[in-house]
């Protein structure tokens, strides 16, 4: 694998130019809507309402960003989102990686069936399970130090647990696939050395999965962070809602200043974009989903 993975740096050919022209066009087409949104967020509503969104600017300012940040009470909701997403992502990855390890590496009977149960569980539309879970959570009592509503309903626990349960399937599916590409020999060697299951998982397999975990971590963070449905359904105290509801706070009962909303959306999207950039390298390596590894 130390051999150059890519063909030698190509000579400049007309084909290359065409390729770049194509990629650039596609990239710009993909980026244009986002840039337009950012552009709109810099202009007052009255102006875009009068002249349309595709027009020359008369006023440009960052006022909407300031307003979006303060009017929506964003910092609190941001903290709420982290309180939900960070434990959610970590626990999901931990449980899913062990399950994937056990099901793909330990030669357990029924592993296939269990993998299908996990994978299929990920397919269900979220809305299907809302009502029964609502009833369930309302009946699960929690002590006051865990939930001030004294039930699982209207607490972070409900949202975190559902996130974990719902995302487990996808993560087990991807991680099991990934782990299968790891050479079995390493594990065999560890077994010969007398390593127990935990050691095989924690010391031998998991470090090799770091790229996959980073990749899944990025995707999971994005999904949990952007989620609004679970929080909408399982939380009734406004102050506990996640960041997506901060955006709703920028909408009035009737009137919506879309440009303000755009500014808010850009602010809200920043953490996910940041996470993507930070983990991009791992990401590309991490979603190596087990094609022939050579």
């Amino acid at each position: 694998m130390t051999a150059p993975a890519l063909p030698p740096r190509p000579r400049v050919r007309p084909g290359r130019l065409g390729l770049h022209a194509f990629l650039l066009t596609v990239s710009l087409a993909f980026l244009a809507p986002l840039l337009l949104a950012v552009y709109a967020s810099l202009r007052p509503y009255e102006e875009t309402a009068e002249h349309g969104y595709f027009s020359l600017p008369r006023h440009l300012s960052l006022d909407y960003y300031r307003q979006a940040f303060s009017d929506s009470g964003m910092s609190r909701y941001f903290a709420n989102s982290l309180l939900i997403a960070v434990p959610g992502v970590l626990i999901t990855l931990f449980l899913a990686s062990f399950a994937a390890f056990a099901l793909s590496r330990l030669r357990l009977r029924g592993a296939t069936a269990l993998l299908i149960v996990f994978t299929a569980g990920n397919l269900l539309p979220q809305q299907v399970i809302v009502t029964p879970l609502y009833v369930l959570f309302n009946r699960v009592p929690l002590p006051y130090w865990m939930s001030d509503s004294l039930t699982m309903y209207d607490s972070y626990w409900a949202v975190i647990v559902v996130h974990i349960g719902f995302q487990l399937g996808f993560c087990v599916f991807v991680l099991a696939n990934y782990m299968r590409t790891l050479p079995m020999e390493i594990l065999e060697a560890a077994v010969v050395d007398g390593a127990g299951v935990w050691t095989q998982y924690w010391r031998v397999t998991l470090p090799l999965c770091r790229p996959a975990l980073a990749a899944l971590g990025t995707l999971q963070f994005t999904w949990m962070y952007n989620d609004f449905l679970w929080a909408l359904v399982f939380i009734s105290t406004g102050d506990k809602l996640p960041i997506t509801s901060a955006l709703n706070n920028l909408r009035g009962q009737f009137f919506t200043d879309y440009n303000l909303l755009a500014a808010g959306s850009v602010l809200v999207a920043l953490p996910t974009i940041l996470v993507f950039f930070l983990l991009q390298r791992h990401f590309i390596a991490g979603l190596t989903l087990g094609a022939g590894k050579g």
């Binding site: 596609v26 990239s27 993909f30 980026l31 986002l34 949104a37 994005t222 952007n226 609004f228 997506t244 955006l247 709703n248 909303l261 755009a262 808010g264 959306s265 850009v266 809200v268 999207a269 996910t272 974009i273 993507f276």
Partner: peptide, 12 residues
């Protein structure tokens, strides 16, 4: 660039 749309939230 091509990945950017994936991270966007509903509102935007």
């Amino acid at each position: 660039t091509l990945y950017m749309p994936v991270v966007l939230s509903l509102a935007i």
